[in-house]
Every structure is written in C-alpha cells, then in structure tokens.
Design a protein around this nucleic acid. Structure first.
Lengths: 233, 233
DNA sequence: CCTGTCCTTCGCCCGGCGGCGAAGCGCCGA
DNA sequence: TCGGCGCTTCGCCGCCGGGCGAAGGACAGG
C-alpha cells in the first residue's frame, strides 16, 4: 500500500473533467494525438498540453512522438483497470448520472486492449470453467487443455507470453466480476477482431470519449465462441 | 459507464490528502468519529467536518449519529473495492513511494469487511478450485458441496444471503487477482475472526491509517483453512 | 439548569489550478 | 529556404477549495 498522500496525488490526476475525458477516450486502447485529445476534452491546445504533461508526469499515460504529432496512450493495463473500477464506483454511487449509451456498452466493449462487459466476463468464466487456465501466484497460467483449445481458436500464445503479465484479473464495473487482462487477454481480443468475430461499432458523433470502445459480436463470432467456450450471445 | 464529468466528480473526493487518509483509515471496516478522523488526517475539526460532509454528499461514506458522537463508515463495498484498486494503481505507478508496512500488509488484511492479501486470494482460489462456488450473472452462488463445506467451517450462510450482494469479486491490489467480497466474503471473515483463526494485529503508533487492517493467521487457523480449502500459510 | 464535549457553521485568507491568447519551437512538404 | 501546422511555453486572470479561529447548536452528566 502506498501512503495516503501518494494515493491522493494519483487521484488528483483523475479529478478533472478534461483529464477524465482524455483518459476515457484513451481507454479504447488507441493512441491519440494531443489535438484529438484537446477536442475530446473540449479545451484549447495549451490547456490540453498542460493536462497531458501532468498525466505523463504521473505515469498514467505514455507519449510516442511521430513527426509533428505526439501520440498518447495509457501507460499500462494497471491504469486501465483503475479507470474501469473508478467508472464502476461512480456508477454505483450515482446511478442517476448514467451515460446514455450505457446499456449497449455493457454487452461487449474494449477495456484498454482486452475484452470487457458481459462478453469479457463470460470469456473469463468459460476459460476457468473448462480449466483452460489455472490460478497461480499473482495470475493465471494456461493448462494443457487450454494450450490446445486456444491454439485452435487462433490465439497467439507466444505473443501473449511476451507481455509483462501473462494473465491477470481486471474488475469489470458493469458486471462486478473479473474479466481477463494481461497478454492473454490482449491476444484473445486481437484474435477475435482479426477473425471478425468481433467488430468495432463506429462512433455516432465526433468527440464521444466512449467511441470505438463499443464492440459487436458477429454471427460467426457467436458461433465460434459458443462452440469453443460455451459463450452465449 | 458514467459521463467523464461525473467520473471526475467522484475522483475529486479521493484527490485530497486529508480525505485520502480518512478513507484509508475507514478501510479497516470500523466506524470512526469525526474527531478520530480529524486526528488521522492531521487537520482541525472544522476542516474535517467539511471533508466528511463532502464525502457523505458524494455517497462514499455513511454517518451513524450516536449521542454527541457521529460515527462514519464506508458507504458500501463498492467504495472499498475502488479504494483497493486505486491503491494498487498508485503502487504500480510509483513503487518508490511504498508504505513501510507494505510487506506484512500483503500477507493478510481486511478490505472493508472481507479478507484480502495473499490469504484472501488463496481463499478465492480454494472456493472456486473445489467448486464450492460457481459463477452466475454478476457474481457467484454456492454449490451443494459448498453449502456443506462452508457450514462445517461455521460460516453463517443465511446472514450472507441477506446482504445486498451475496458474493462478487473485489480486485486485490497486492496480488493482482480477485478476492471474494459481498455477504459471503464478510461472513467468512467474521467466522475466521470469531473462531480465532485470524487475529487483528494492534497498531504500533497512533493515527496510522492502516492500523487494524493487518491480520495474522493463527496456527489453529492455518490448520483448519488448510484442511477445508487447501490454503497454505 | 449549567457545564463540558463534540461537532458544525460562518467568515476570512491564501495558494494553486484551470482557462485563454500570444509567442516560440520543431517538423513536414514544396 | 520558407510557409504551414502541431504542440509547447509564457504571462495573465479568475475562481474554487482547503485551512484556521471564533461562534453557535446538540447532547450527556451532575
């Protein structure tokens, strides 16, 4: 545990509407430029620059300069997990202030680089229920059965193992249950998108910080995931 | 998901050192008076009163007046889960600022009203691994085997079922895995404390916001939990 | 009823933070 | 080499929030 002061220092970064909008937008897993983030937050370039500087300083986001552009993304899956949980808390504390697109959002969405929502939780339950993954200290490992099953699905397990964390839990705010994060969660999501089992739902209006996080399960995807892991649409 | 503005409004409440100290102290599950919380936060009574008013207003804590005293406690387990996760984020983002008592803290501690740390995660793994609990929409239910096993341990399942949530996951920041919250988590912790399988470790110095959250497994507890659920000390 | 205690409300000051416009810097393309 | 563009830095202002001291209710005990 960190000291309460350090605790608060991190929370300060989340406590501004403009920064919250930026972080929410980055929760799609994409890297966005400073200008895009300024538009999402509804502020000018100077203010956005100051906010981004503080977020980088605080270790919440990382910068990747490319020519004239500076791309920003969340620094780690820990940050994504934090944002998910804080969203859930806000939901629990003031349910009246719900986001209009909330319901569709609960079905299937991206949480940084892995799957969340009812689909993400069902995936987690399917993997543990069929013993494709087994608990270990600080996370999960793949069993022999899981090795076969995931490879058959087309998941790149080597890429997953190259990640800093292979597999760990991430709290799902809408389901109040854990879904799967880490390299394995990322590769499963990538596999589903690559094979068009899942598709992104395009944004309806400019500047929606939740845009591009929404996902839709295709008929093909429903069939394949149902066969492999017993996941119902 | 809530709107980023609402999101930030909640985060503001966590973003002050004094409020963070208060919330950290309340994470022991105890109800504390305004005066005690003022001392924990290192501020005067007027400032503490203002902070507590905002925390109540924001739905993070609840008040129980008793005579001249006003007892404050965390409003819900959602709040506790949030604080756990935010603590983990801070840990991940700035490991250098670690709390001195961190290591002992990771072994076994209270998270609001249930068990956390390595012990809490091992409990969760034991319950799922032996299929004493099974996943359901938004949480967990007890299986027939679990009904028998938990009753034999002395857990009051009726009391657990009376809670708003019977069993759900709560992210453990130190293990990066879920531990068990909800009525069942609370009753299991209560059972372990009642039967002296776990004991609280007294605070070393006044005003430590982490005091009374630390737990120690007794030899008896290690034996009983090992027999019932395969949990190693 | 009076006193002490606990807590809140009020009034005040100050520091910090968020916003913008203007100017400066760096990179791309012609 | 020279605009154009993206982003940052600088200077400035306004405001909100946190702190305290003093005063004002509420409650227990004699």
């Amino acid at each position: 545990m960190t000291s309460p002061a350090a605790f608060a220092a991190t929370a300060v970064l989340l406590a501004d509407p403009a920064r919250a909008a930026m972080l929410t937008a980055l929760l799609s897993g994409e890297a966005l430029t400073a200008g895009e983030l300024a538009r999402v937050a509804g502020i000018g370039a100077p203010a956005a620059s100051a906010h981004l500087g503080r977020l980088v300083e605080g270790g919440l986001i990382a910068v990747h300069p490319q020519g004239r552009h500076r791309y920003h993304r969340l620094a780690s899956e820990e940050v994504a997990a934090m944002l998910e949980t804080l969203g859930g808390l806000t939901e629990a504390v003031s349910p009246a202030r719900r986001w209009p697109h909330g319901e569709a959002f609960r079905t299937a969405r991206l949480c940084y680089d892995h799957l969340a929502g009812r689909l993400g939780v069902a995936l987690h339950a399917g993997l543990t229920g069929r013993s494709w993954i087994a608990p270990t200290a600080g996370g999960w490992v793949v069993t022999a059965a899981g090795e076969v099953g995931l490879a058959a699905m087309g998941v790149d397990l080597d890429a997953a193992r190259a990640a800093r964390r292979f597999a760990c839990d991430c709290m799902d705010w809408s389901e109040r249950r854990a879904h799967l994060a880490g390299g394995l969660g990322r590769e499963i999501a990538a596999c589903c998108l690559r094979r068009h089992w899942l598709t992104r739902i395009p944004a309806e209006r400019e500047g929606d910080p939740l845009a591009r996080r929404r996902l839709r399960l295709t008929p093909e995807g429903a069939r394949r995931l149902g066969e492999a892991l017993g996941i119902a649409a």
